[in-house]
């Protein structure tokens, strides 16, 4: 019994950490979805691209850039890449059939994933954690780095939330989520908001990719591993709502972590599907969805 409780506590701390990282990925996804009406299937691949960008930055700039520098570089580089993608592929599809950007992003996900596979091969890349110390936790040594990640992820989420609620551009983002046409009529530069949101979303995904890189290894499939969980978080959390995304990400993170006590491998995802189905039946707008998904 004692052992079980111990395991439970450890898994829930891990779940908290996974949930916070998931929240970062899902936040960008939900903003893109809410603002641009694009289901960005390639979002997981931006997360993967970020991890590779961070790995490359550390490899070729070791000594000059530290780990946290690599996080920033990856965020900026992938945000710029996302900006270019939005400008070239998605810009002309706005306002048309919503199917087209959906399929384009799906094709983009395939292309990015396969490019990473071709360039970097199947073997995962190792990235050393910047903090090697660990804290005693029951009779285990719990890596301090995981606790630091939680702090960093929570900080980034807080900054994002402040940006969306307290700045001019943030208010424009909210206005666009609520009513695109009306926002455009009131003088919100909607195309610029689109570009900003897409770049910020990709940057967030990239930074979370680097953050978790020392825990998992960096490989081409890491994007498709997280994207399903991010999808579930977005539907459960409610469209375009950052607090909802945060709550849902923590819920899903904890659920999969605690489920891992009883189940093995990727089976806890089945639990998430059950949660998703319950939400679809009883609360299709999600936890805090402002505009209906229906």
């Amino acid at each position: 019994m004692e052992q079980f409780l111990e395991r439970l506590v450890i898994e829930s701390v891990m779940g908290l950490q996974n949930g916070l990282v998931l929240a970062l990925v899902a936040a960008g996804f939900t903003l893109i979805l809410g603002v641009m009406n694009i289901v960005n299937f390639a979002h997981g691949e931006f997360y993967m691209a970020g991890a590779f960008a961070g790995w490359l930055a550390l490899k070729f700039g070791s000594g000059i850039v530290g780990f946290w520098g690599a996080v920033l570089i990856a965020g900026v580089v992938v945000a710029a890449f996302g900006f270019a993608i939005e400008r070239s592929l998605f810009r002309t599809t706005h306002g048309g059939n919503p199917f087209i950007p959906l399929l384009v992003s799906f094709g983009l996900a395939l292309v990015l994933q396969q490019s990473a596979l071709t360039i970097f091969g199947t073997i995962g890349k190792y990235m050393a954690p910047p903090i090697k110390a660990s804290v005693p936790f029951f009779d285990l040594e719990f890596p301090l780095y995981r606790i630091v990640i939680m702090g960093v992820a929570a900080l980034i989420m807080l900054l994002l939330w402040l940006f969306v609620t307290r700045t001019k551009w943030g208010v424009w983002i909210q206005a666009t989520i609520q009513n695109r046409e009306m926002a455009a009529c009131m003088g919100v530069p909607v195309p610029r908001v689109y570009q900003l949101v897409f770049a910020v979303g990709c940057g967030l995904a990239a930074m979370s990719g680097v953050l978790v890189a020392p825990i998992f290894s960096v490989d081409y499939s890491m994007g498709s591993d997280i994207i399903v969980a991010a999808f579930i978080v977005v539907v459960v959390g409610g469209l375009g709502s950052l607090p909802g995304t945060m709550l849902a990400a923590l819920l899903i993170g904890e659920l999969e972590a605690i489920g891992a006590i009883f189940l093995e491998g990727s089976q806890p995802q089945i639990l998430s599907l059950v949660v998703l189905m319950v939400f679809l039946v009883f609360r299709p707008n999600g936890l805090m969805g402002e505009r209906g998904l229906e």
């Binding site: 009406n37 919503p98 199917f99 999808f231 995802q269 089945i270 599907l273 998703l276 679809l280 998904l293």
Partner: peptide
């Protein structure tokens, strides 16, 4: 029946979740 409860573009998301869970079930 589950997926039609949300708008069409979300339909894709939910089918993807269904598909990957079916894959996990077959694997495990």
């Amino acid at each position: 029946a589950f997926s039609v409860r949300v708008r069409d573009i979300y339909f894709g998301i939910i089918t993807l979740v269904f598909g990957s869970v079916a894959f996990i079930v077959a694997n495990s």
